[in-house]
């Protein structure tokens, strides 16, 4: 009997250890601010660093367009509040690049025309921040870099280090569309060059911008048509110019995969 009681006691002791509360860790570390992917992709880890750099060109816009807006997604970490919370952006210099100048190439973040856009609204943890680029003559011959980073203020501390900055590469020349990505390079369009891009636009009469290429990606047969069309067009061009086949701005022969 004594043995049985001992066994029961031991069993109760063991079982009692299985009944501890599960003490989930709740974030209580104040509000942070950081960039992120589009709202629809915040739970897709492969998109954690998406949109870090965006390319933009005024090339396709009518000459009457003097400014345009590029958007980034930014997130408040640490939950919602019942009041609007302003955040602060600043420009960082990009080494080795021609950096955009506030007031000349873009509207400064502290400019009264845009300052009120940099706010996380009450009850929200996300907003899309507009960066207004200005068109000017030097963009016809230059490609500018505008690196943006967050600054700690009374509302937010800085978030994850990898998500504290975004960059825009912009020009008024042709530039590599974001959709002309590694997959397009490998299988359909090959390496980017301005000469190739201009040839594609001239040969097809299409814009070959992000929207156009994204549309092609959604329709394989259309993408196949255009890749075949471009190859044929390039051969026809080179046949018509036997001594001066199409080369890019670096003097390399233009080819398609």
């Amino acid at each position: 009997m004594k043995k049985i009681i001992s066994i029961i006691v031991i069993a109760i002791v063991f079982l009692s250890t299985a009944c501890d509360d599960n003490n989930f860790k709740i974030y209580t570390d104040g509000a942070n601010i950081q960039f992120g992917p589009e709202e629809t992709r915040i739970y897709a880890t492969t998109y954690n660093l998406a949109d870090t750099t965006k390319a933009y060109t005024f090339y396709y816009k009518p000459t009457t367009v003097t400014q345009d807006t590029v958007f980034f997604d930014i997130y408040a970490i640490g939950g919602i509040t019942d009041k609007d919370r302003g955040f602060v952006l600043k420009q960082d210099s990009v080494a080795g690049a021609t950096n955009a100048v506030a007031g000349i190439d873009y509207i400064a973040f502290d400019d009264s025309r845009v300052k009120n856009n940099y706010v996380i609204k009450a009850g929200k943890v996300h907003t899309r921040i507009p960066v207004i680029l200005l068109r000017n003559a030097k963009l016809k011959t230059n490609t500018l870099a505008l690196k943006i980073s967050t600054v700690a203020n009374e509302n937010f501390r800085l978030g994850e280090k990898t998500n504290l900055w975004r960059k825009i590469i912009f020009t008024d020349k042709l530039s590599q569309p974001n959709q002309w990505d590694a997959n397009m390079i490998k299988y359909y369009l090959g390496n980017y060059s301005i000469a190739k891009h201009a040839f594609m636009i001239q040969a097809s009469g299409d814009r070959w911008d992000d929207d156009f290429i994204a549309n092609l990606k959604a329709d394989y047969s259309l993408l196949s048509f255009y890749t075949s069309f471009l190859k044929t067009s390039l051969i026809n061009y080179n046949n018509a110019h036997p001594t001066s086949p199409l080369k890019d701005e670096s003097g390399v022969l233009v080819t398609f995969p």
Binding site: D219, Y220, S221, L222, S224, F225, S228, F229, T232, I235, N236, N239
Partner: peptide
């Protein structure tokens, strides 16, 4: 031609070339 074993919408594609120099 239309390659019917891949996604397509019944639209014929680019004119096929005779050879690599068209």
């Amino acid at each position: 031609s239309i390659y019917t074993m891949s996604s397509n919408f019944g639209v014929f594609g680019n004119a096929q070339m005779r050879d690599a120099i068209n």
